[in-house]
């Protein structure tokens, strides 16, 4: 990163590469007190500040996940007196690229209802798992042993197994 302009451009490209990760993490962590736009702004600022020192110890996507989740957890804990999950309808309107999106909307609504019932740590775990982040990377991001990732996923499965499918 030679100068600020290069750095800003490189950062903007990185954000474009991982915009869906940023979106999904902020989408599932947004609350009434910390709305989606605010939490995404927090995540983007954290990414901007940290990208200069990204050491490529893990893949870029894993790092983006880690920063976004850490920022969400930190922001929620420090800013919000009480975490209240929003109903799906209160979330920002989702624009799908396809016009025939009713089925997709239903699927996303179902996913939202399943994922938001989890506690924030389990939410972080499942979000990374959904995107096929390797167990080792999930373990290092979460600060838990690799085996614990598997056992926690098993517990999450039990927790949501009673839910109806769409």
């Amino acid at each position: 990163m030679e100068n600020n302009s290069d750095y800003n451009q490189s950062f903007a490209k990185m954000v474009r590469r991982h915009e869906k990760i940023i979106f999904s993490v902020c989408f599932f962590y947004a609350t009434k007190d910390v709305p989606f736009e605010d939490i995404r702004q927090e995540a983007l600022i954290s990414l901007f500040k940290g990208y200069r020192n990204f050491r490529h110890d893990c893949s870029e996507s894993t790092w983006v996940y880690k920063v976004c989740i850490n920022t969400c957890l930190f922001s929620l804990r420090k800013l919000s007196p009480k975490i209240k999950t929003l109903s799906f309808d209160q979330l920002p309107i989702i624009h799908f690229q396809d016009d025939n999106d009713m089925e997709l909307k239903e699927k996303l609504e179902w996913l939202y209802s399943v994922i938001t019932q989890l506690n924030p740590m389990d939410k972080a775990l499942i979000l990374m798992w959904l995107d096929d982040i390797p167990y080792n990377d999930i373990a290092s991001s979460m600060g838990i042993p690799r085996n614990t990732v598997a056992s926690r996923l098993h517990r999450i499965k039990e927790k949501i197994s009673s839910r109806k499918e769409i």
Binding site: H95, F96, D101
Partner: peptide
């Protein structure tokens, strides 16, 4: 199935 079709509006 949902993820590729989401527009992150970023």
């Amino acid at each position: 199935s949902v993820k590729p079709l989401i527009d992150p509006q970023l």
